[in-house]
Write a protein that binds this DNA or RNA. Structure first.
Lengths: 221, 221
DNA sequence: TAGATTGTTAATCGATTAACAATC
DNA sequence: TAGATTGTTAATCGATTAACAATC
């Protein structure tokens, strides 16, 4: 049902990085940048930069380069659309939820945090990132009233499993998922961005140990 | 200088996921699993599962499948080596550092948190995840004495820029990087695992807005 | 033996990189 | 005009998927 993107996921994932570098350039007062200079800064190739920008239509000037202002405006438009913020709820007000809440309400990210939910009675009624913490029991009426589109899951795996059916039923279309539950296996129709911190740390470990082994092998030769 | 891996990065990044699913299977008492069943659970293909496992040598049984125990043991060995923990420091004891500290000391991840560093005088001397918070000024003598191998960066971009030279000089070989500073551009020799939360959230926004637009286009047709 | 499932090679697909014509 | 740099097509590279022989 949902239309396939013309833009590939790797390109989409690079957009925020372009956005950051262009912001830096703009704040430094640079008005023009070439694909090759930008590529060098970012540790990629000029080819990739041009290829990426051309997914959305050429906003460069042949022979000259790209105007930082124009590029930044175009990429901002891609990332944040018309400026309408995505109504969002956060589930889980623990340490991770606390850290993550400030990212959601950051004004550069395009989201509007409506409320936080938790089961811990001690937390309910308090504030987090400027919004109240509700009991999880209030989820259904709250969603019916406020129609959040995005849910941020900072709960353990089992809670995510228990909650996901209801969240999808209540109209959640996108998940920023910190739980170790693979939502997209069961709900292929929702958009999921996984941040599996434990996984990321483990694979770093593999790469470091592999490197150490290689070093030792080299030394003993 | 550092030896190139025989195993590609996409495969390495999938290892923790296999590890998780196999742990679940083991705890459920399953003793055998076929590539096709595992693939179905994980939302991938049997081909990929077999291809991945064969990067490390075939530990399946033709005609039968894979023994969960064997597979789990092999993947654990890959991820955690001989069981030696990687000595690690955390820099930045703010909200994000607080959340992240518990992941580092989690006994399944293969790391040993030695200390936390911060510049906030109010925090110095306190404990976090069972280790003391030091002043950033103590970084050099501490590293000389304790030889940490991994640094976790939970500091703003500018602090990361300021610190990175010293950290690399002091012998840090791997970074779990939450700052928006692209360490691998300047230090290609270190192993970096980036977790750019803001970026991840922004690209989710792009995908959601793209989807909404597609829906609206479909509705108006 | 027959059925099942791996290990491994071959085919496909997609993303990155290179090349170059267009043009400022 | 000459030099520079984009936009875009073509070539390469690597990862995923499919196919099938090996074998339990």
């Amino acid at each position: 049902m949902s239309a396939q993107s013309k833009v590939s996921l790797p390109v989409i994932k690079r957009l925020p990085k372009y956005y950051r570098y262009l912001n830096t350039l703009a704040s430094e007062g640079r008005d023009k940048i070439s694909s090759s200079e930008l590529a060098k800064m970012m540790g990629t190739t000029a080819s990739q930069v041009r290829q990426d920008f051309n997914c959305f239509g050429g906003f460069g000037q042949q022979g000259i380069g790209y105007k930082v202002e124009v590029l930044l405006a175009e990429i901002s438009k891609l990332l944040f659309g018309t400026g309408e913020l995505l109504p969002t709820i956060l589930i889980g007000a623990g340490r991770l939820g606390t850290a993550v809440s400030s990212f959601i309400s950051r004004d550069t990210n395009g989201y509007r945090l409506l409320a936080v939910f938790d089961i811990n009675p001690e937390l309910i009624g308090r504030q987090m990132a400027g919004v109240p913490i509700h009991a999880l029991d209030d989820l259904e009426p709250f969603c019916a009233a406020h129609k959040p589109v995005v849910a941020v899951l900072c709960v353990p795996r089992q809670s995510a499993i228990d909650l996901s059916d209801e969240l999808v039923r209540l109209g959640i279309q996108g998940f920023w998922n910190f739980s170790h539950y693979d939502l997209s296996v069961k709900y292929p129709e929702v958009t999921v961005e996984n941040v599996h911190l434990g996984d990321s740390l483990m694979s770093l470990g593999y790469r470091l140990r592999e490197r150490t082994e290689a070093d030792e092998a080299a030394r003993s030769r």
